[in-house]
Amino acid sequence: MTTWITICDTCKRDDWDGARETETHGAALARLVEDAADGGPVRTRRVSCLMGCAHGCNVAIQAAGKLNYTLGRFAPEAEDAEAIVAYARLHAESASGQVPYRQWPQGVKGHFVTRHPPLPGDDG
């Protein structure tokens, strides 16, 4: 089953300067996550706004039938992108989407914003 990393490409951290920067922090993070996720059971997609502006840069880790997570407060840096992808790969390996804390990459600790239960099936 595919785990998706949904990346907000419109996120701007407090230090964003539109006069100096040609892309948003979210777009820069998206590019780094896409590069880090190349191949494997994880796919990426970009969206414009996850409505977590106070926590930018934001990503969602999602898969059908599993717990889903929103993470934020990332920097547009390769180290953060690699931690996001490493966590998403563990999510993909988990039957429920829950990854034991002791397995979390250091780079995602302190970045969890929300957890969502799987959607119920069509029968309720």
Rank of each mutant, 00 (worst) to 15 (best):
P41T: 03
A27T: 15
A83C: 13
P41M: 01
E82T: 14
S96K: 04
M1A: 14
K12H: 14
R115Q: 15
K109D: 04
A37F: 02
W4N: 05
A81S: 08
I5S: 01
N68F: 03
A75V: 09
H116S: 13
D38V: 12
Y101Q: 06
T2M: 14
T2L: 13
R115G: 12
R89I: 09
R31I: 05
R20C: 06
A63C: 08
D123F: 08
A28C: 07
R46Y: 02
T24G: 00
R89A: 13
E82R: 15
D38F: 12
L50H: 03
R20F: 06
G65N: 11
Y69K: 06
T44M: 09
A37Y: 06
A64V: 11
A37T: 11
G110V: 13
H55G: 07
R115I: 15
W104K: 05
E82I: 11
E77H: 12
R102G: 03
I84F: 04
G39S: 10
G26C: 02
S48F: 04
W104V: 06
E23I: 04
V85G: 08
D9Y: 03
A95H: 05
A37H: 01
A83F: 14
R45H: 13
E93D: 15
N68S: 11
H55D: 07
T10V: 12
V85R: 08
D122M: 01
H55N: 07
H116D: 14
A28Q: 08
A28G: 09
L67I: 10
G107Q: 00
A95V: 11
V47Y: 00
D123H: 05
W104E: 05
P117D: 08
D14F: 12
A86E: 15
P100S: 12
L50S: 00
Y87R: 12
P118L: 09
E34L: 01
D122T: 03
A88T: 07
E93H: 11
G56C: 09
D15Q: 08
V99E: 04
T24I: 07
G97W: 01
T6H: 07
L90V: 04
D14N: 14
D35S: 00
R45C: 12
C11K: 01
V47A: 05
L50C: 01
G56H: 05
R43M: 02
I61V: 15
R46H: 10
G40V: 12
R89H: 09
G121S: 05
H55W: 10
E79T: 15
M1I: 13
A64I: 10
V33Q: 06
G18K: 13
E34V: 07
T70F: 08
L29T: 00
G56E: 03
L29H: 02
I5Y: 00
V113M: 14
K12C: 13
Q103D: 10
H111A: 14
V33E: 02
E21G: 11
E93M: 12
A63M: 03
V108E: 01
L71Y: 08
Q62Y: 06
R102L: 01
G39P: 00
R115M: 15
D122E: 09
D9G: 04
E21F: 11
D123W: 03
T44D: 08
R73M: 14
P76A: 10
N58Y: 04
P76F: 00
T44I: 14
V59F: 05
